[in-house]
Design a protein around this nucleic acid. Structure first.
Lengths: 200, 200, 200, 200
DNA sequence: AATGAATGAGCATTCATTCAT
DNA sequence: TATGAATGAATGCTCATTCAT
């Protein structure tokens, strides 16, 4: 993970302020997208002075990267939670992992949209880093699928599909909202995307 | 479909120049995204003078809308092609329609990425229009699924899933490129996403 | 001579506008120095819109370089004037060349001050270019001195001294103004700095 | 001499810290010039905390003034040294004074460049003060020249010329370095600029 | 109809200075 | 006395849009 440089050295302070910056940025990015969001907007939304932002971040680019780091962390935290790790049966573990992933997507609705749409604006070296972290999540799924007995090729495609399809409810919310509940959608996704793995 | 206003009145001319503008814009948008693309860039890429752009389009926003119109038309053209319409068996029609949709996604790879990521930057009234057109494509799938015998709820979710999943190979090209062929991916998608419909 | 890039291609126009920019810049630089001069100030002083400046110049740095080019040209023009070139006797040619150089310094008083004090702010590659052009002027003096019969070492030191001392009246104007006329100063300089060469 | 105000009252402490500030500032100014040097840079270079600078100095301007005071003091110290004062013969005194002045210039090479180029950035009232101090040095030379028998006008011009020409080796170091030794240059300057005074 | 020169609003970023600790 | 976190005014530069030719 690349380290974002900061003028301020006190780690505690840096973490706290960056949290505020990211939270503010999410609000602004959600409303306007990365480009139309001005650093001033973000400063206001995070309750910091314009200049102070630059004590914790070297450029606007860094804020986007900070967002992605925070975003990926949310998935890591959930997928590494105790109850998932403890499940021995790979099929059951696959199911709860997938549902957990879908859950996070629903909970971070706006962030999922941002993550999907703003990636292109990240600096190359940052993007590479984030894609690497995402690949680790795919690997988690693939590992379970191999355990269940899928071939490497199948496992790879399926793992990618699981990660990708989790966002279905969010990416198509415009079409689905009001017609289908979150639970309905989750069940549908599990049904469709886990079927072949479960039948092994 | 909203009409984009143009200073020039000769329809033939307008169509030809707009085609060039959209083609140029796609190149530039693909490289830089909508925001970083300047109207100058687009003018150069399309072989028009900077000022001339504004004879065929009222603002930069219009160019994005023009792109989306062109993009949606590509899907319409393919999904309305004779051989699909002529197929009587709904299951077979479903299959070839889905494959056709996936095909277009692979062919318009860059445009699919653009469509997914730049939608937020369209003016509200334009966005609504494009979403309506997209809904028509979903409706096409839903219609076949109802014919096959799915309930309205199932058909709706499934239709959305088919349209959404078609872009899988493109949206995750970073992870899939080099490991899986286009055909493999297509077969995998058909297998996973059409299974329950086919089993009716 | 490095070429400053310009968006506008019409040479006639570029020359005219750049002339205005340099003239405006001299006024502003003279009052505030390079750094405190804002591009906005320069735009106003030259009667151009802020944005237009950047049609003729790529950055503020370029304006400084343009000034130095213009400054060096003034010396070239004077030192290459017909009456100087036609003089056959090297001692006489030395005298009129030196007086001409001093003359230009007095005439371009403000520019001389700028040239002396702002050089450090030029981009390295530009600075090198300007120093090369200045070296050519020194070489002009050296050539005459060699013709008169000075050794290479003497000629080199003397040539540098002549170029350097020409600005005496300007660099010390704070102390000399009101006490000594321009002619007095010129005669004094010729007396002191040409004496040994003339005595050969 | 204008007094720079300081929040701290302990004179001993003030002097010591200001010395460090000036020393640090010279390093930074030399590398970047006054304007590009940030107070942070100076704080780091002088080993003080950013805020502490403002305990000893009221503004960045003051630091520049402090530099000039320190710079002028270097000349005073040298020109008032015992062996110069003790010399009775005015011609000999003139010679050793001029050589001493040239010596200081060579030794304070970087500071000489700074002094020449950054004067414009000093606050008016400070600049006036420094120019007054410089005038005192000119007066020292003038006094000797009058003693030797030059007219007031000659003495004034010559005195200014001596002070001004001392920096020749430094101001033109780009052209002279590698070709002429410090001694050669010094001898040359004495030869040229003292000749008429010595011939009285 | 076609062109590109002109414009200024808008933005990221820097930095002198203040002030709470 | 010493420190450095906080601030926002100020500035270089970009770019959509207009308009004279």
């Amino acid at each position: 993970m690349k380290q974002v440089k900061s003028r301020v050295k006190d780690t505690r302070l840096v973490d706290e302020k960056r949290k505020r910056i990211v939270d503010g940025a999410i609000k602004v990015f959600t409303k306007k997208g990365y480009h139309k969001a001005t650093v001033r907007n973000i400063a206001e939304a995070s309750g910091l002075g314009l200049g102070s932002i630059y004590d914790y971040v070297k450029s606007k680019d860094d804020i986007l990267y900070l967002f992605y780091q925070n975003y990926m962390n949310s998935f890591y935290a959930k997928l590494n939670s105790a109850d998932i790790q403890l499940e021995d049966d790979p099929k059951k573990r696959l199911l709860i992992t997938y549902r957990a992933h879908i859950d996070v997507c629903f909970e971070l609705e706006d962030q999922v949209m941002l993550a999907f749409t703003q990636a292109r604006y990240m600096k190359k070296r940052y993007l590479k880093d984030i894609l690497t972290r995402e690949a680790e999540i795919v690997a988690k799924f693939k590992e379970i699928l191999l355990e269940i007995g899928l071939s490497d090729g199948e496992a790879d495609l399926t793992a990618n599909n699981l990660v990708s399809s989790s966002a279905f409810g969010v990416l198509r919310r415009w079409n689905l909202k009001g017609k289908h509940t979150r639970e309905e959608i989750t069940d549908f996704l599990c049904d469709v995307n886990l079927k072949s793995a479960m039948e092994r």
